[in-house]
């Protein structure tokens, strides 16, 4: 078994309440109840998320020694995702349209897609993502070694399902509230406003404008999801976008990136292959 990674991205979480002692057999039993279950032979597009150990990628064994991460507990979960390869769908549709000499109707396309999914999905192997975390029970802290939104959501959900404990991200608010600053400062923290630093490039005198507060950003309101109107005509590329599986894959395993931000571009090489880190 290779050692835990020595580079990459990490997202810290805190929890409150009491977790099962990771040294107890009961801890491994909890993991076992939410173990990874294979979808290798599934005939539909689906995602499977569950615990495994660094020593056993199947999720069949949870020996306490396999969770030994020195001063922490080494957790690993696996995300398998099976989805229809859209290129195959496009090739078959192009061939069908060429053979009959005209475009297929939306209904015909749907039927062709359903037929192909029945035929091809049992033969498609799922993509696999392995994600590690280090849990420090005495500090009520867990470090997740993945930064993608999908991996974070999968992890917090799996953790809750396993231990009935809600993880809180160590963001600027939670990190402050969890720190040893006094209650008065914590009270101030909850209500503090951003500093508006003066723009001195606009000053034409030697005195600069005063420092002021600016309004604190309010949490955005989540709009209720509106059901999408069924599409009657889709192109091949439309089809691949609209019918993507319900789970965004983790960039860490070399699957499709969910964002192209500067940071992700910067981190891509170090997150590209987990095995490299080990």
């Amino acid at each position: 078994m290779a050692a835990i990674r020595k580079s990459g991205g990490v997202v810290p979480y805190f929890w409150q309440g009491k977790l099962v002692d990771p040294r107890d057999d009961e801890f491994a039993e909890h993991l076992s109840l939410q173990r990874f279950r294979t979808i290798e032979n599934a005939a539909s597009e689906e995602v499977s998320v569950g615990w495994i150990t660094p020593a056993d990628p199947t999720g069949d064994n949870f020996s306490p020694e396999d969770l030994d991460g020195g001063i922490g507990t080494w957790l690993r979960f696996r995300i398998d995702k099976k989805s229809m390869p859209m290129k195959w769908l496009q090739i078959h549709r192009d061939a069908a349209e060429k053979a009959r000499g005209k475009k297929m109707s939306a209904k015909e396309r749907r039927e062709l897609k359903e037929d192909l999914m029945d035929q091809l999905l049992p033969r498609v192997l799922p993509t696999i993502t392995l994600v590690d975390a280090l849990l420090f029970d005495d500090r009520k802290t867990v470090l997740l070694f993945a930064t993608s939104k999908s991996a974070k959501e999968a992890f917090t959900k799996l953790f809750f399902e396993t231990f009935s404990i809600q993880l809180e991200p160590a963001d600027p608010l939670q990190s402050g509230m969890r720190s040893d600053i006094n209650d008065e400062l914590k009270h101030t923290l909850e209500r503090v406003n951003p500093i508006r630093w003066p723009n001195t490039t606009l000053d034409n005198a030697k005195t600069r404008a005063p420092i002021t507060d600016m309004p604190r950003p309010a949490p955005s309101v989540v709009e209720p999801k509106v059901a999408k109107k069924p599409q009657t005509e889709t192109s091949a590329s439309d089809s691949s976008q609209n019918e993507s599986p319900p789970f965004e894959v983790d960039e860490a395993a070399g699957m499709s990136a969910e964002t192209t931000s500067t940071e992700d571009a910067l981190e891509a090489p170090v997150e590209a292959k987990m095995e490299d880190q080990q």
């Binding site: 835990i4 990490v10 020195g70 080494w74 981190e267």
Partner: peptide, 26 residues
Amino acid sequence: LTLGGVKLPEDAEECESEMDRTADRA
């Protein structure tokens, strides 16, 4: 406050096994 592109210090010289390395890195 998340950390990206982290590089840890070199593994300690005393690390003789993968388990030692895991403990050191943790």
